[in-house]
Simulated scan of single mutants.
Amino acid sequence: MKFSVLASGSSGNAVYVENEQHSFLVDVGLSGKKMDELFRGIGRDIKNLSGIFITHEHSDHIKGLGVVARKYGVPIYANEKTWGAMDSLVGKVPLEQRFQFDMETVKSFGSMDIQSFAVSHDAADPMFYIFHENGRKLVLITDTGYVSDRMKGHIKGADAFVFESNHDVSMLQMGRYPWSVKRRILSDVGHVSNEDAAVAMSEVIDIKPTNVYLSHLSKDNNMKDLARMSVTQTLQSCGIIAGEFVHLHDTDANQPTELVLV
């Protein structure tokens, strides 16, 4: 199983996952043209996708979905409430491409099992995904105001995480956003901060080689170096030294990460 974080940030999000038989995309938060470019950046062709999984209906996760769905005829998977919330936003998706993926369930595609789990975000019914194959585990978890014990139970012990590290609290509090937006981001249905993300990581990382991709960084309220430093320091305070068995990686809003083996 291999994956690449094609894009991650406030402006758009998409993650690519493949094995020898299938290739999947989680979210299509950029234009169809940009998605084609990102796929070329990892040496893959978007027309070969086996399916697209949607986490929730916010525009930075579905901006290019309608175009990609209609152009390439890819099967789309989302839960019932998310389908209802995004129907008017993505345009017509043919019935034969619409599939329901219920919350807290598992779908199998050959040797790969894909598990859905609920997160806490201000969307209709937001959920993220865990990819399992041959004893290896890839977790995608962003767009959540906090990481509950239930979520930790699902994601614990992954070999790789795409983990939200959205904002620095001080930057957010002192920044230009109106208070209503700040309050929403800081709430239980907003986004996790660098420090809160690291505390949650410390409780789900096992003592084995683990790669963590810091994702969904706010363009206005975070920076890559700051996120990495904050997570490193907080992990250290929890007894985990970044670089020993846990390795932190940056993601980017416009450039894909290297396609790597889980």
Rank of each mutant, 00 (worst) to 15 (best):
Pro126Ala: 09
Asn221Trp: 04
Asp27Tyr: 00
Lys33Ser: 13
Gly84His: 06
Ala118Leu: 11
Lys63Trp: 03
Asp125Ala: 15
Ser215Asn: 07
Asn221Met: 09
Ser111Ile: 07
Lys137Phe: 00
Ser116Arg: 08
Met103Val: 11
Asn194Tyr: 15
Asp113Ile: 01
Ser59Met: 12
Ala7His: 11
Val67Ile: 11
Val139Ser: 11
Val68His: 04
Met86Gly: 01
His167Asp: 07
Ala160Gln: 04
Asp188Ser: 14
Ala242Thr: 12
Ser165Leu: 10
His121Asn: 11
Pro75Ser: 10
Glu18His: 03
Leu248Tyr: 02
Lys92Ile: 10
Asp143Pro: 01
Tyr177Pro: 00
His22Leu: 03
Ser180Thr: 04
Arg183Ala: 11
Val15Asn: 13
Val93Gly: 00
Arg184Leu: 08
Gly51Asn: 07
His58Ser: 14
Leu138Ser: 07
Ile46Trp: 01
Leu65Ile: 10
Val17Leu: 07
Gln115Leu: 13
Phe109His: 14
Gly73Arg: 04
Phe3Cys: 12
Val67Met: 06
Val189Lys: 13
Asn254Met: 08
Thr55Glu: 14
Leu140Glu: 01
Asp206His: 10
Met229Ile: 10
Val26Pro: 04
Glu37Asp: 15
Asn79Met: 02
Gln236Lys: 15
His167Thr: 12
Ser116Cys: 05
Leu25Ser: 03
Asn79Ala: 02
His56Met: 09
Val260Pro: 01
Asn79Gly: 02
Val181Ala: 14
Ser218Pro: 06
Thr210Leu: 10
Thr257Asn: 08
Asp196Met: 05
Leu186Tyr: 01
Asp225Met: 12
Ile52Pro: 05
His247Thr: 14
Arg183Val: 01
Gly243Glu: 10
Val169Lys: 14
Ala227Ile: 04
Glu195Leu: 08
Phe101Leu: 12
Leu217Glu: 09
Asp36Pro: 00
Lys63Asp: 09
Gly153His: 08
Ile130Leu: 10
Leu140Thr: 02
Leu25Met: 03
Ser237His: 14
Leu248Ala: 04
Gln255Glu: 09
Val204Tyr: 01
Gly239Trp: 01
Glu80Asn: 12
Met112Tyr: 01
Val199Ala: 06
Arg176Trp: 07
Arg228Leu: 15
Asp125Ile: 04
Arg184Glu: 09
Pro178Ala: 06
Gly12Cys: 05
Ile52Arg: 06
Leu25Tyr: 00
Asp250Glu: 13
Thr232Gln: 13
Phe3Arg: 09
Asn48Thr: 13
Gly135His: 01
Val192Arg: 09
Asp27Ser: 15
Gly32Asp: 00
Glu104Ser: 15
Lys219Asp: 09
Gln100Lys: 15
His56Leu: 12
Gln236Met: 15
Leu6Arg: 06
Glu96Ser: 10
Asn194His: 14
Gly9Gln: 05
Phe245Gly: 02
Ala158Asn: 03
Arg228Ile: 11
Thr105Gly: 05
Tyr16Arg: 07
Gly153Trp: 03
His58Phe: 04
Leu65Lys: 12
Asn211Tyr: 13
Leu259Met: 11
Met171Cys: 07
Glu244Pro: 02
Ala242Pro: 14
Ala227Lys: 03
Pro209Ser: 14
Asp102Lys: 14
Val204Pro: 02
Asp196Thr: 08
Asn254Cys: 06
Leu214Val: 11
